[in-house]
Design a protein around this nucleic acid. Structure first.
Lengths: 160, 160
DNA sequence: CAGCTGGCTTATGACCAGCTGAGCCAGCTA
DNA sequence: TAGCTGGCTCAGCTGGTCATAAGCCAGCTG
């Protein structure tokens, strides 16, 4: 297994996109806040309550995720209320969804007994949704069929 | 965005599969070790060198991941060498691949300048590989098309 | 204009993830 | 049998991630 991925050199941990991504969303609290953002939370109190995180941590993470442009603060005002801030997903944030879905799916499969507590369905057709790997030719890709190659950037980088 | 996901109750953070998954692979070191395992590392020293983690942390994580049955220790012996231990992915571990691929892909897209340092290709057809969300009817699913529903377990659970 | 509420911040402390540096043991090779 | 190498372990430290408890400010409602 994974023998296919073996040949690798000329690129190291600090250039790895995975490592960079983990710098941004490394903590449990970040993942939980993202989960709630995907579930539709927008207000500070919603995040704090639903994640079960303390207020200081919630505030700090919201700030961090906003700085990373995964969430965006926007003021809003309900009639008869003062202006408040609300947090919304940016496009950058929305593209983290497959990560969360894949993790959740793995948890459903291997850590839950008796099935998923929450199901994701495709609106309209109603079929269950999962995260999977596909190639541009639309084949399903399994671990054994993966091939690793230095990207174009890496090659150019090395040439210069 | 994500307004569709809003209606939720009857299930809380501690039942969430995502939270459970994060209990198992919560740290940076765990992700990095998994990355190397997917890339084909099997020996202690390979893990330590390639992840850039210190030996104590590497040892501790390998132990944890083995305990969680994501990796499996197996003895092996090269001719003229003594018996050594090697770490291999279990099926449970292999199914974490979409998580890693999705994270890496996000890092490529949003955190790298000038493209991915490493490319994943489909062996044989050679096309680029990505993690994406699909429903059982094989439609591509975007965030806006996701619908959230309590799973069967949750319903049964509530009834009992 | 007093009080309440939402959305925070500050202070303090526990605990955990990571590091460095040193040491240990098994078993091959000289 | 002495030394080397791989695969670890142990001790001690730093810094970051969490918690709890308390306080602050804006602005609406009474």
């Amino acid at each position: 297994m994974t023998g296919r991925l073996e040949p690798r050199q000329g690129w190291t941990a600090d250039r790895c996109s995975l490592a960079k991504a983990l710098e941004v969303v490394r903590t449990r609290s970040a993942f939980l806040i993202l989960r709630e953002a995907f579930y539709g939370a927008t207000r500070f109190e919603e995040f704090a309550e639903r994640t079960g995180l303390s207020e200081p941590v919630t505030a700090a993470q919201l700030r961090e995720l906003t700085k990373a442009e995964i969430l965006r603060r926007e003021p809003y005002r309900e009639p008869g209320q003062r202006t408040r801030e609300r947090y919304r997903m940016t496009d950058k944030g929305a593209e983290l969804l497959p990560v969360l879905v894949a993790l959740m799916q793995w948890g459903d499969r291997w850590l839950q007994e008796g099935g998923a507590p929450v199901e994701l369905r495709h609106e309209g057709c109603g079929a269950l949704v999962s995260a999977q790997m596909r190639c541009d030719e639309d084949h399903r890709v399994e671990l054994q069929e993966l091939e690793l190659a230095p990207g174009h950037r890496a090659r150019r980088h090395r040439a210069s």
